[in-house]
Design a protein around this nucleic acid. Structure first.
Lengths: 367, 367
DNA sequence: CAGAACAGCGCCTCTCGTATC
DNA sequence: AGATACGAGAGGCGCTGTTCT
């Protein structure tokens, strides 16, 4: 897909050239208008805009000049019709206001554009089956060639499971249990790895009483992190000091403070995201507990803010942009007719060690 | 634009009905396939899907049944071509990770969909003229009928000013000085009103030493709020206790604390957004100043978090969704051929009084 | 109320050509 | 002669209009 610069005010140009006295100003120029102006056949123009090999440089130059002066732009509908493909993919984003889905969409956007595909995306916040189905229909009505579903929560996954996908699709979701589709394509950040790295890190620091501030239970990531947290502790013969569910917001992190700390003996808290960690740190400072001297706090996401928290937050970096790009890459391969086997893409998160976690305090707090 | 429910697994249906032994499975069904199955002409099918009045209920029912069993979906490219319109509008969003642009886009999305228009949106973060121009070309290549530009910062506005817009467009931006276009359509939340309401509120509470935590200077909203802040104070014969520029982030709010408070005598701080207010409140608690007893802090945006801050934040509510909807409404009117005069749309913000601002302390702090 | 017939939207593709080195 | 560079023309993509029965 090549991009040309429009000479200003040449958009609604007259097409009087080819239609004599009609002078239908306001109508976009035609491929034949270009041909006429360049003194070539419409064939040649077509060959130029489609990068056909056997075109002489000077002819190409003449045509491109004509294109520029007319402000010609191929009619995408006509192209789609003749080629029998729209060059468009559709995306549904659930909870687009959240860090992960938002950045994943960014990656999806970049990747599809770079591949020469148009993207139509729709947001979903509503959990109703009807709303989700309407979003799907809305995309299918555009004859998208493929579908990318950013589905962090269960409701959207459930709809996908029930109705199935009839065109090439990729589902970006952690909780894969709901996808029974045989030839399904699925992508996610490896939550288990990220969680294990973090919990192992806390264990190495000597912590044995670790609490978990989890995300909402209808989020796949939250479920996975919580489950892996418990499993990793269990593998070391430990049990959680406490588990409190938040809603990803800083406020919920603040509010979860007492449940995580009071009487639990926790010396470290693994928060399922950075924002809640922020709120929790705030709570701890309010009750006079120092981070990390009294309590270690770690997060997940590596938001821009996390580097500047006080103290700077130890967290897990997830490359959502890359996730989106990988997903689109594989989706496009399928659209172009690659094999159709079940496939699962994973990106690896990485531990970002800053200073919000430290060794287990020598003397236990009394509380 | 009506939405139909696809019977599962009926998408890639055979079209053997009309093409005999060819049985081109994998090809989407045709309007003629539907006609044949329903025992009517393709004309009638066209009339049904376009809600033509003169169709008998039973005929309509037969056709709709055929549509359903075949999983027929009109080819959007063919429709666009025949109608000579794409039914698509394009949107560019600068800084989509920020609260305002993000929610404005949400409104744009909802409004265009409700009006039966498809939406293509692209994100811009880069300030380079090339990147912005490419985004524009990308949308124009899709033959969008109109353009919605969410332009909170100056660089995008500058590009718009320089190249002009050749198709119906609406610019959502506060800083209108850069738009010389004669018949331009522009929309924004009334920043001056919001700022005045807030500053007046602080003045009524008796504050005379008020500091301002502003947003980045290349943001239109930030410039407007700052200018109005200064003007409103001046109208009361007052000068700012301090002005510090942040970058919208909580961290910058935290970092701005000393500059706003130390030695300024400020008893109130007007933060240009809620997130910075959050950081500032954190700073204040760290240095032992109570909000609002010692220092009043107010924000702007009314983010979901603001209601749960401690103390709950007094702020200004901006209805970005409505802004987006209004903008699209007026844009569509232009696309449909309404008058083309210069037009400016404004939505009114409202004051949300919570408890982070109180009366001026009786005794001045010593610092 | 609905069918038949046809033109047309703008572009692509394919088949033949002719022309030039 | 056998390449390469381009033209002419037709048919088709799926749907929408209109007009005439």
């Amino acid at each position: 897909m090549e991009l040309r610069v429009l000479p200003s005010s040449s958009w609604r140009v007259s097409r009087g050239i080819s239609r004599g006295s009609e002078m239908a100003a306001g109508t976009a120029p035609n491929i034949r208008d270009v041909a006429e102006l360049a003194g070539v056949s419409h064939q040649t123009v077509s060959r130029v805009i489609n990068d056909h090999p056997s075109i002489q440089p000077q002819t190409r130059a003449r045509v491109e000049a004509a294109i520029k002066t007319l402000g010609y732009r191929p009619n995408s509908a006509a192209r789609s019709l003749a080629r029998m493909r729209t060059g468009r993919i559709g995306a549904i984003v659930d909870s687009p206001e959240h860090f992960g889905p938002m950045n994943t969409l960014r990656g999806v956007e970049v990747a599809s554009r770079r591949a020469g595909y148009f993207l139509s995306s729709v947001s979903v916040n509503d959990d109703s089956v009807d709303a989700i189905n309407q979003s799907l229909e809305f995309l299918l009505d555009q004859n998208v060639e493929g579908l990318c579903l950013i589905a962090p929560r269960l409701p959207l996954l459930e709809v996908i499971r029930r109705r199935g996908l009839q065109i090439p699709s990729v589902v970006i979701a952690t909780d894969t249990a709901h996808l029974v589709d045989d030839n399904g394509l699925q992508a996610s950040v490896d939550q288990e790895l990220g969680t294990r790295m973090m919990v192992d890190y806390l264990l190495e620091l000597g912590h044995t009483r670790i609490a978990h501030l989890s995300g909402p239970h209808d989020w796949g990531d939250a479920r996975s992190r919580r489950a892996t947290f418990e499993a990793t502790l269990a593998a070391h013969g430990l049990t959680p000091a406490a588990i409190v569910e938040g809603d990803w917001s800083p406020d919920s992190g603040f509010a979860a403070g007492p449940g995580l700390i009071e009487g639990t003996g926790a010396t470290a808290v693994f928060s399922a995201n950075d924002q809640m960690a922020l709120g929790l740190v705030h709570y701890l400072s309010e009750v006079g507990l120092r981070v990390p001297d009294d309590v270690s706090v770690v997060g997940f996401d590596n938001t821009p803010e996390s580097a500047h928290m006080i103290p700077p937050l130890t967290t897990v970096r997830q490359n959502f942009e890359k996730l989106g790009e990988m997903a689109i890459g594989s989706l496009l391969a399928r659209i172009k007719g690659a094999r159709v086997e079940r496939e699962t893409l994973r990106t690896q998160p990485s531990l970002v060690v800053r200073s919000s976690a430290g060794p287990r305090p020598a003397t236990q707090r009394s509380r």
